[in-house]
Write a protein that binds this DNA or RNA. Sequence first.
DNA 1: TAACCTGTTCACGC
DNA 2: GGCGTGAACAGGTT
Length: 267
Amino acid sequence: MPELPEVETYRSYLTGTCLQQVIVGVDTEDPKKLLLLPETEFQERIKNRKMVGSRRVGKNLFMELDNGEWLYMHFGMTGDVHYYRDHADKPKHARIVFYFENGFKLGFICPRKFERIGIVENVDAFLKQKKVNEDVLSISFLDFKTQLQKRKSIVKTTLLDQSVVAGIGNWIADDVLFKSKVNPSAISSNLSESSIKRIFDAMLEIVKLAIEKDANYVDFPAEYLIHARGWGKHEYSSECPNCTTELSIEKIGGRTTFYCTNCQPLT
DNA sequence: TAACCTGTTCACGC
DNA sequence: GGCGTGAACAGGTT
């Protein structure tokens, strides 16, 4: 379920399992969809390489190779990775499998084929071409403020736009706006500086906490809105954790949005 | 059964 | 070019 925090857990998982091991081959199911380059070229460029480092920007993960190129991974909505040895342990939907010299394998799990893998020579140029701005954890307040003030779209849409800030997904956007008490339909360019500061602070706090908890949303504080999204077998009600008003659930900016009309008034 | 869904891109209309 | 909307992608979950 990859938003930024999950991709960060994947990054540390790969760092703890795959580094410094020679890749002897790779299998790809449906390469025309999942690969960003021709299959034979991908195989040639990955074979006999080792992963030696990593970098994450928003939901984009780059594993550094020992020839200076980067293995690019994007997890779509449902991507995951799993490191295993025995064929019997191959996870379902592991449509791309890397084989290492030590006999272990890395499965890139693509249940819905929304995931993508490629080879990138220059990460910064790649991100610029993809219009991905600075990561949540590194963007300056000034850059963030400028981005929000120049958009006339609603703030929920703005936060999800990776060219504004990289890493915010639908669930985090709702919790950020809830914590900062901003209505998701507020127009970005109309927001006061203090509202933008609250959004910025909430965004950092929520993302840092999510990473600390290894993106395990069940462990998030009870006052987080995410628990209202049907997790934990209805252990949580759909009342606002602050004021017990019944939460609103609407399509806003084309995405299902949870918010509290009382705590997040549209002023 | 049918509706819904975490991300992204694209086409279209204004 | 900006912005909103809806479709498309594919299969799981509810």
